[in-house]
């Protein structure tokens, strides 16, 4: 690996809160690292451990759940 390690992070976000918050960050033109890929769910109650594990299996370096 010649270049610096750039992790891929998957964020599982609740439609009502965390996803809206991510949108708000946009409206306010805040900046954050472009490594995050948000996956929207209706409710983080639906987040299943397997979703997190699968994301890692599929190559994510980290996952987080926000809701």
């Amino acid at each position: 690996m010649g270049e610096a390690f750039e992790p891929k992070v998957v964020a599982f976000c609740c439609h009502y809160c965390a996803y809206s918050a991510a949108d708000l960050a946009g409206s306010m033109r805040m900046e954050y690292s472009p490594n995050v890929r948000v996956v929207k769910l209706m409710c983080t109650g639906k987040v299943d451990t397997i979703h997190l594990l699968k994301a890692i299996e599929d190559g994510a370096d980290a996952v987080f759940v926000a809701g």
Partner: peptide, 20 residues
């Protein structure tokens, strides 16, 4: 969502934003 959660928050990282 390539605006609110991409171009708007990665304005200074066009390459990464495009990849995202």
């Amino acid at each position: 969502n390539i605006r609110d959660q991409c171009s708007w928050v990665h304005a200074t990282h066009p390459v990464e934003a495009t990849e995202k």
